[in-house]
């Protein structure tokens, strides 16, 4: 089956529309073991290292089943770099989805218009018909995946499932054929029900937030330093599945409402509401601390950090902010900071 690559710094792309077109939505992730040499010929090195990495991979060649790209408004990077992708890549189908910054009634109407345009262009280009019925089916399928992920996520709280293992599952769900994903998640769910909890009294339970983290090795690295990611506030995480889409409403309206009402990403307005989301999760999951990660040059996270720092300090919830370079070698240099935080909390 053919795939549509998704260039999105959040998870704002309505995968259901792609599924209804008979295609597999395939979120693009980076590779922290490579250097963005070719991308650096197009984008200055003082710009987001993660999106440069994505461009590097795209220039070198994506999965051969990928027959088009959807770039979705996340931050200034996706906005501006989309044109560079148009210059560098040779796909007949490339669409920029202006997922709105705001979350009010006008934004809702606009998002509906933009999704309708996406449908029109997919239909015209791939000679398919995206019917209401197909959209309903794909919403149902995605809701099933969301429910499964949410149920599995809770095994992190029961200290049965490691954050890294869960992270890998969410990544898989964002790239593979959704029917396969359902099978895998159902089987994993059964497995976790019979798995014994891991016992480690020294483990530090934290919520992980910040720029989207797509390298599972980074989560493993945090685990090696004594942390357990009991919950998260990430795109490769809870933001992908926390709420369900209303299956009774008109599909496009339901999709738009879902994206505008889900836990807010730092790229949307007002991003300070993210504090309330994290605070609530911190309370429910009784975390020992909060780790906020900014990929180097990730402006939305960098702007919000001092506010988060102030607010969590007021609540006396331990908070650690770290800027990370998207490169596995560089993780090691951060161990002192993470270890010191683990000591404190």
């Amino acid at each position: 089956m053919k795939k549509i690559g998704i260039f999105d710094s959040g998870v704002e792309t309505p995968e259901e529309i792609i599924l209804a077109a008979g295609l597999i939505p395939y979120r693009l992730f980076g590779d922290p073991t490579i250097e963005p040499d070719k991308a650096n010929e197009h984008i200055p090195p003082t710009h987001c290292v993660w999106t440069r990495n994505l461009l590097e991979k795209a220039i070198k060649g994506l999965d051969e089943d990928i027959i088009g790209i959807i770039g979705t408004h996340g931050c200034d990077r996706t906005n501006r770099e989309f044109d560079i992708w148009l210059e560098c890549l040779n796909f007949d189908f490339m669409f920029f989805l202006n997922s709105p910054r705001k979350r009010d009634e006008s934004a809702l109407k606009f998002f509906i218009d933009d999704m309708k345009e996406l449908i029109t262009q997919l239909e015209d280009h791939f000679n398919v018909k995206i019917t209401t019925e197909k959209l309903r089916e794909s919403i149902k399928k995605m809701n099933n995946i969301r429910s499964l992920l949410k149920e599995i996520s809770e095994f992190r709280k029961k200290m049965i499932l490691k954050g890294s293992e869960f992270h890998a599952l969410v990544k898989l769900a964002q790239q593979q054929d959704k029917d396969e994903v359902v099978k895998i998640l159902e089987s994993k769910l059964e497995e976790f029900k019979t798995r014994n909890p891991f016992l480690d009294t020294n483990i530090k339970k934290v919520i992980l937030t910040g720029s989207d983290i797509d390298d599972t090795e980074f989560i493993k690295y945090l685990e090696e330093l004594g942390f357990h990611i009991i919950i998260d506030d990430l795109g490769v995480g809870t933001k992908y599945f926390w709420d369900l889409i209303d299956e009774n409403e008109e599909p496009i309206v339901a999709l738009a409402k879902y994206h505008l009402n889900k836990p807010i990403h730092s790229t949307k307005f007002p991003s300070y509401e993210r504090f309330e989301v994290i605070k609530k999760l911190a309370e429910i999951y009784e975390v020992d601390g909060i780790i906020n990660i900014a990929q180097k040059f990730c402006e939305p996270i960098l702007y919000d950090h001092p506010y988060m720092n102030k607010m969590f300090k007021n609540l006396e919830i331990p908070y650690l902010f770290v800027e990370v370079t998207y490169n596995r070698e560089s993780y090691k240099q951060l161990s002192t900071r993470f270890s010191a935080f683990a000591e404190i909390i």
């Binding site: 010929e41 197009h42 984008i43 200055p44 003082t46 710009h47 200034d76 990077r77 906005n79 501006r80 770099e81 044109d83 560079i84 210059e87 040059f297 402006e299």
Partner: peptide, 9 residues
């Protein structure tokens, strides 16, 4: 960055 993005191309 919005302005400097695209300068190389």
């Amino acid at each position: 960055r919005p302005n400097s993005c695209g300068l190389y191309d």
